[in-house]
């Protein structure tokens, strides 16, 4: 038993082991982002659809489902961030003296700024949770935000989204964060296949295209909500 733990801890402390952790937790977050976006797009199907969806999430497994998801995602985020910061520190230490001239031949800006887009997104996640989950930035609770659907009292998610995004500054921050997420995903999704050892000579281009398409899909889908609120489509 202890030798298993010892070997595994040695594995995850190595550079490739940490990268595999980053890729695996990244995959969890990549899939979450898609599910989260599809759920939110229910706002376009009208208040009842998204309110019922929110209520379903809150009450699944007698209210336990949402906590299982939250704790799982929290663990994924913590491992993802801790491992990348540790790897970045090691890599900075690996080149103590900078070049006078260094020319990147093939790498893109999104790839070179992963740590910065990632850390900004971490700040965004904290803000986003305070905004719509904890709701201590603006008061989205109380009887003003209750709605009755099919005889059940539930939180008026639709109204919260519309009021939340009607502030131009808040919407601008969301859209900026989604642009950073686009860059983060366009490198991260295709990277995942490389780190998990799945890319091949023939599939590599496909994975790259999937990465860009996925990032674009998330960008367009997520930005459509604040833009629709600001344009008065959702009200």
């Amino acid at each position: 038993m202890s030798s298993v733990v010892e070997s595994l801890s040695c594995f995850v402390r190595s550079s490739i082991g940490k990268k595999i952790l980053v890729a695996a937790t990244g995959l969890v977050l990549v899939l979450f982002v898609l599910g989260h976006m599809i759920g939110n797009l229910l706002a376009f199907a009208g208040p009842d659809a998204i309110n019922a969806y929110g209520h379903l999430l809150q009450t699944s497994l007698h209210g336990g489902g949402v906590w299982i998801a939250r704790l799982g995602l929290l663990a994924a985020v913590v491992v993802h961030v801790v491992a990348t910061i540790s790897l970045t520190r090691q890599s900075r230490a690996a080149r103590p003296d900078a070049y006078g001239r260094q020319k990147a031949q093939v790498s893109g800006r999104a790839a070179r700024t992963m740590i910065w887009s990632g850390l900004t997104l971490l700040c965004f996640i904290v803000f986003h949770l305070m905004h719509f989950t904890v709701r201590n930035i603006e008061n989205f609770g109380g009887p003003d935000y209750e709605v009755v659907l099919d005889g059940e009292k539930m939180h008026n998610v639709y109204k919260m989204v519309v009021v939340g995004f009607s502030h131009v500054g808040v919407s601008a921050f969301y859209i900026l964060s989604m642009v950073l997420l686009y860059g983060h995903l366009s490198h991260g999704v295709s990277s995942l296949f490389q780190t998990l050892g799945l890319a091949t000579y023939r599939s590599e281009r496909i994975f790259k295209a999937i990465g860009h398409a996925y990032a674009l899909l998330i960008l367009v889908g997520n930005c459509s909500i604040p833009l629709a609120v600001l344009a008065g489509v959702l009200k």
């Binding site: 550079s15 082991g17 595999i20 230490a93 990147a104 093939v106």
Partner: peptide, 30 residues
């Protein structure tokens, strides 16, 4: 340092070693 999949190494390699070897190392190491 560690690999962040930028593939500057492949572009600079005078013998054009492919980064698919890195994919294989990731797989073999796991």
């Amino acid at each position: 340092g560690h690999c962040t999949n930028h593939y500057e190494c492949e572009a600079a390699c005078p013998k054009e070693i492919s980064v698919r070897w890195i994919t294989k190392l990731n797989r073999d190491y796991a």
